[in-house]
């Protein structure tokens, strides 16, 4: 059994290399690869920008509210937490698979 499994493994490997040689295993150009613009750097930059921009907006709102109501650290603290959550929400909407109904982007 063990020996059979071994030969099976090598057959699988040979089949895989043969398929690769003939270009049969190339992944179909899905929607994901089209959106990814082809490089990991782009994805990383996009996700980072989404995270940071939500935090920047939340910081601005919190700071403005505190300045207005003279409650200095209160709203800043609350909105930093909310901004972090909004950043994660942005990232999720960015990278969630298209099969999930994207009601809102």
């Amino acid at each position: 059994m063990g020996e059979e499994k071994g030969t099976d493994g090598t057959f699988e490997a040979r089949l895989k290399s043969a398929r690769k040689r003939h270009g049969m295993d190339t992944p179909a150009p899905g929607q994901d690869s089209a959106r990814d613009s082809g490089n990991a750097l782009g994805v990383g930059l996009r996700v980072g920008v989404e995270l940071v921009s939500a935090l920047v907006v939340a910081l601005a709102i919190g700071w403005g509210l505190d300045r207005w109501l003279h409650t200095m650290p209160l709203f800043l603290v609350i909105f930093v937490l909310l901004g972090g959550a909004a950043g994660v929400l942005n990232v999720w909407r960015e990278v969630s698979p298209p099969s999930v109904p994207r009601r809102k982007q």
């Binding site: 989404e50 921009s53 939500a54 920047v56 909105f79 909004a86």
Partner: peptide, 18 residues
């Protein structure tokens, strides 16, 4: 609601920074 509003307002920021 605040999270959604922040997410909405962060659109121009991310659009311009990108």
């Amino acid at each position: 609601v605040p999270i959604e509003i922040i997410s909405y307002l962060s659109r121009p920021v991310s659009l311009s920074i990108r």
